[in-house]
Amino acid sequence: MTAKADRKRGSPAAAGAAAPNPTSDLNADTQRSWLRQMLLIRRFEEKAGEAYSLGKIGGFCHLYIGQEAVAVGTLAAMRGDDYITASYREHGHALARGMSARAAMAELFGKAAGCSHGKGGSMHLIDASLGFLGGHGIVGGHIPLTTGMAFAIKYREEDRVAVCYFGEAAVNNGAFHEALNMAALWKLPAIYICENNRYGMGTALERASAIYDISERALSYDMDREVVDGQDVLVVYQAMQRAVKRARENKHPTLLEIRTYRFMGHSMSDPIHGHYRTREEVEEHRKRDPILVWSEKLKADGIIDERGIKSLDADVISEVEDAYRFADAAADPEPGELWTDVYASGGTA
């Protein structure tokens, strides 16, 4: 697909990467770093699942396993001063943005050393210094926030972009439509990333949305759109590069529908398969595990060999084990913390 065709408003890019997809503009270190990041997220989430089962993590815990290429590919195309918001399935985005595994794991454990000092938990990972502005728990509720951040960027005549991650179930929500309409109406530098993992909890896309192709919703707002293969980190990265360019240079918002798949249940308390999807379906999707897809490509291109992959994996496992030990040993917030951060002046106004 040519850049020109891509710039045509309302023209979706072809999903998938059937054609050869050159990586010549990416150095080998970058390509390996993406594999490392995806492995880190995978091992972090596996460890979080384990800690949840042991009762060390409470509440809800929504794992990102299967969708790693989306966070890693999109965040690789962003700049350090861009703004990011995400839904409650945001551990992967936080890590890909540069949050330490220790700060993230300690937050899941509710500890004072967590990124949100133990007051946010799994659904509210936040690090303002990284522009990582949540971690939001109401489906669709954070989409207008991103429009507001993009508004602030335009207001201050900056060249940042504001990026929002949400699942495909959020596009049936009024907040989504209101937010996208204003972003397009006011020509704001926003990118709306719909991670279409096929299921809103246990409800399949076609049981919730009157149209199957979610990117078409952008047509209502004369907004740029693309459909992207979310299991191939390079394809994700390239689509995001185009969206970032449109936003940063032309103040054109984009709706990216990134098709992916959730390998786990909706949250740790939900089954992986059962009434709403079959074991066979999950197994079929696992064949396009984003880590497998990228590993195979890097091996084929001579960027890394099996030994190198094992070494990266061992490295991230050790990082995650360290984070786990750190979080487990870390202190709970002081009892007095109950009464801080309610207002600027503390617990009472």
């Binding site: 918001t85 509720g141 207008p144 991103t146 507001g148 508004f151 009024g174 209101e178 937010a179 204003m182």
Partner: peptide, 11 residues
């Protein structure tokens, strides 16, 4: 809902 959210996001 939308513009209240825009205000909060900008804030």
């Amino acid at each position: 809902l939308g513009f209240a959210g825009v205000g909060v996001g900008a804030a």
